[in-house]
Design a binder for these strands. Structure first.
Lengths: 401, 401
DNA sequence: CTTATTAAGTCAATTGTCTTGACTTATTTG
DNA sequence: CAAATAAGTCAAGACAATTGACTTAATAAG
């Protein structure tokens, strides 16, 4: 019996896993509910007062939470609410887009401290990598200037770029995304910055941002429809970001709009790329965002006709997402100019009847999320924070670090 | 500060959570890899030999694992492999279909011990509930006759029926599924049997079955396309069944086949319902399964024309699933007669090019799973087993029981 | 054939973390 | 001012994993 096949198994856990989880649960409770007393935390987490006291002491010593003024609220000893300390941790987020890269520094609660962007030189990573590293360094030094000892509290670097990953790019590739795909980005960033690095696609990053500080805050099942140069979905399933087997979950842009005839990917119709084509403008022009915004505000006829078309496809997408994921809400977020995004969300009503038409619904089926060119970078930065502090199955297991 | 709003938080954990998790991890490792020695388990789970020894002792005492003969494999003391004891636990599965109900008893490793089916009287649950309870009781007593003390080892009752749940049924409803939807099924089953009961839709049940003993065994990301009277998808995401916010995730049958024009739900074209309509036969006839099977084997022209149409829609579905979920594989399973399912899987090739075309792929993109009218009942029974013994985040937390 | 080496598994003590129950503190109510 | 109530602490205890030395049983090497 030459038994060399690897044994596959989930990892076990031990006391430290327990403790790590409980710490995360405390932080999560404070993030979701605002300041809470130790007694509140004990009730909410089903741990004992004593355990909570010990953990809160630890977190306070680590500079992650702090006590507020005691509150009298009836009989009994006044309670001492604790809250998260924003300066308790920082993370850097990096967005690599087709012709621009953005870096951002955020704190524990998602405040943006500093940010910077740079145009990416043509030619892909061969020259772009250096630009990116410089950009990260700039943001990092600015952060260090703003906050003493920020370096020691940097929990990681999150990167986001358009997906899909691990697939040969076929067809035209004006922005050298194929080259970026092949480039050892994670290694370059890790060695270049000395930080832990993770990569996700831009839709997933947006979902992470919406979950930390946006419309998906506190929701365990939400889908973010990211309308950017392409279109994708970021999936919050069961309280965690879902990435699929190869990090490509949510690539709804590839979904085909009909089963027969000449199948058109959603992306060819509902995406900024299709809008640019419709308007016959150059997407590489740095002024497109403002231009589209203004055209939208001016009720431009070509924009309107595109919206009319796109809305049909977006309604279809929302219906599809609701049927397949059964989420609490669908959020439109990401790279579209704000005025356009608003118009789209308005124009979507009425939505197609779906399984999501529930009688006692309180959260809207479809809503507008962040419309900010920085949303992806913010989400990229939110990822390391989330990995470091949010409760998750993986964090309990022994093989996570 | 009248603070009566509920505080939402994840629950903490303690020693028992740790221990429960580690027990589950052991069982899971044995299920996935076959018999393993304590030393193997220690390496695989990253726990110490000593811890593994203790846990295995416990599991052995509980009758869940047992030692096999020692194996000499080189230097050193021979190892003693342990394996799961099938008779260590049992569960009952119940399928409520449109005109028939099936009950099944399975053991810890998914062996079917006994099963029975009964036609459901017309009129929905008012008369059907009694039939179902009698059916469960029959299977339960047969199980007790086969295995001494099976009652004490029954971990629960799993029920499966067509979804979606919590939605008004509109349109025609020949099988009173609306009445079943409103009926307090869980309560009736729980009080009628004294067992813990959970409900899922039939596609989810199939996925659970495929994961325990079928094509999804050992996979963490798999989607089961369930072709039955309707069509749905059972989702294994991140190693666990995903049900969405309201238990309706995977209702792909409602997905629309085109974004514009007159949108047709997938279900209207790719489902046995559509086949029956195409063949102009009565789906309530208990002989349909055999009839369709025979027609398929006889290369019937009407079947072939339906297949030709359906395959286009199924290709679209697989492409959609791959784009959105990025799974390791897609499995066709469930209620279609075996010959038909085989023909469909063959006819699906070549699949539409998708993100799932990876260079070093070993698991097929699309494959045939269980084609057995009992698959849904089996999956229903697998669910309590999985809940009782598989590692999961929920099992670690304090509020799970 | 003897000894070294290797690996599986056990024993007993230790450590880390949560729990328990009694106690202290601070406030409101009557 | 005493009783009631709630927050929070203290110290001991319980539980489960870890540690390191030890035992057992096999093969390999000289």
């Amino acid at each position: 019996m030459n038994d060399t096949r690897p044994i596959r198994a989930k990892s076990g856990t031990n006391h430290e896993g327990t403790s790590a989880h409980n710490r995360r649960v405390m932080m999560d409770a404070l993030r979701m509910n605002g300041p809470l007393s130790r007694a509140d935390l004990a009730r909410a987490t089903k741990l004992t007062k004593q355990t909570v006291s010990n953990i809160i002491d630890e977190l306070e010593q680590d500079g992650l939470v702090t006590a507020q003024e005691a509150i009298r609220k009836g009989r009994g000893q006044p309670s001492t609410p604790f809250r998260l300390v924003p300066e308790g941790a920082f993370a850097i987020g990096l967005q690599i887009d087709r012709h621009v890269s953005r870096a951002i520094a955020v704190d524990l609660v998602g405040n943006v401290l500093t940010r910077a962007e740079a145009n990416l030189p043509p030619g892909g990573p061969s020259r772009g990598a250096a630009v990116i590293l410089k950009l990260i360094d700039k943001v990092r030094r600015e952060l260090a200037g703003l906050v003493a000892q920020s370096e020691g509290r940097l929990v990681g670097l999150g990167a986001a770029m358009p997906g899909p990953f691990g697939v040969e790019v076929t067809g035209d590739d004006p922005w050298m995304m194929a080259a970026w795909q092949k480039f050892p980005l994670l290694e370059t960033l890790a060695t270049g910055t000395g930080l832990g690095v993770r990569l996700q696609n831009d839709a997933a990053a947006c979902a992470t941002a919406e979950r930390m500080v946006g419309a998906a805050h506190g929701l365990d099942h939400a889908v973010c429809l990211y309308l950017g140069y392409g279109i994708g979905a970021g999936l919050i399933l069961g309280g965690e970001l879902y990435s699929g087997a190869h990090g490509n979950a949510g690539e709804i842009g590839m979904a085909l709009l009909s089963a027969s005839g000449s199948p058109t990917p959603l992306e060819h119709r509902a995406s900024l790329a299709s809008l640019y084509q419709h308007l016959a403008i150059d997407p590489a022009d740095p002024g497109v965002y403002a231009m589209v915004n203004e055209l939208t505000l001016n009720n431009d006829a070509r924009i309107n006709s595109w919206i009319e078309e796109a809305v049909m496809d977006l309604r279809w997408s929302v219906h599809l997402i609701e049927s397949i994921f059964d989420p609490q809400t669908v959020i439109l977020c990401g790279g579209a100019p704000e005025a356009l995004a608003r118009r789209l969300v308005e124009a979507m009503h009425p939505l197609s009847p779906s399984i999501a038409d529930r009688r006692h619904r309180v959260i809207p089926r479809f809503q507008l999320g962040m419309t900010d060119p920085w949303a992806v970078a913010l989400g990229a930065a939110a990822d390391p924070i989330s990995r470091a502090f949010d409760p998750s199955f993986a964090a309990i297991l022994k093989d996570s670090p």
